[in-house]
Design a protein around this nucleic acid. Structure first.
Length: 215
DNA sequence: CGTTCGATGCACT
DNA sequence: GTGCATCGAACGT
């Protein structure tokens, strides 16, 4: 058991697909006044450069996508569909716009607080959420961890929003096309931990009928 | 089980 | 004014 180590800048200053694969099994942590919440990263997507039509840098530099052009290790948070905050880790070198979107976590610390945030304002009871639903999906995990637009441009290598290596065992991963985009569908730039029930999207194959009882 | 559709805010044309 | 890197309730089979 080793001490938690916040990932340093050089971790992010690499090819985005390498960073994406290596983020699986790392721990996203958010420390707020309300408390500390965290989860194991089990699903990510890479968005790479102005030539990637699904990347926010596709139109070239704008006010919104400026963090993508910044130094590696920054957080890029933006509002999607008017409702959901999505969090990315900026990769590669300054001036080279690319990032990894974090899409799902397995809840680790502060689960009660995460449940409260996820159900606040809705009619749902905190207990109605299963453990694996709490941080399943990019909009859900930011809500659970209390990540908002105010966290945009924060430095993930230090401070209240960070990603740690806690020496967790390596996970088997699978690469698939990215989810929920209209362009750039062909690239297999989504990476997910195999077998994790917290992963979003459809099951790759096999038995989806696990809900039914045997007998 | 499956698919459809409304909510909601901001960047960009 | 249009279009999203979404979510979940509502409805169809």
């Amino acid at each position: 058991m080793t001490l938690p180590v916040t990932l340093p800048r050089f971790f992010y200053a690499r090819p985005t697909l390498d960073v994406a694969g290596d983020l699986i099994g790392k721990v996203l942590v958010h420390h707020t006044r309300t408390g500390l919440t965290s989860g194991i990263i089990v699903e990510v997507e890479a968005y790479i450069g102005e030539s990637d039509p699904a990347c926010h840098a596709a139109p070239g530099p704008t006010a919104r996508n400026a963090p993508l052009y910044g130094p590696p290790g920054l957080a890029y948070v933006y509002l999607n569909y008017g409702i959901h905050n999505l969090v990315n880790a900026v990769t590669e070198e300054e001036g080279s716009p690319a990032a990894v979107l974090i899409r799902a976590l397995e809840p680790l610390e502060g689960e009660a607080l995460m449940r409260a945030r996820r159900t606040r304002g809705t009619g749902r009871a905190p207990g109605a959420l299963s453990h694996d639903e709490i941080c399943r999906g990019p909009g859900n995990l930011t809500r659970a961890l209390g990540i908002t637009l105010r966290d945009n441009r924060l430095d993930l290598t230090k401070g209240p929003l960070r990603i740690e290596d806690r020496g967790l065992p390596p996970r088997e991963v699978e690469w698939t096309p990215r989810i929920g985009i209209r362009v750039g569908v062909e690239a297999a730039w989504r990476c997910a931990a195999v077998g994790s029930a917290a992963v979003s999207g459809r099951k790759s194959s096999g038995t989806t009928a696990r809900q039914r009882r045997p007998g």
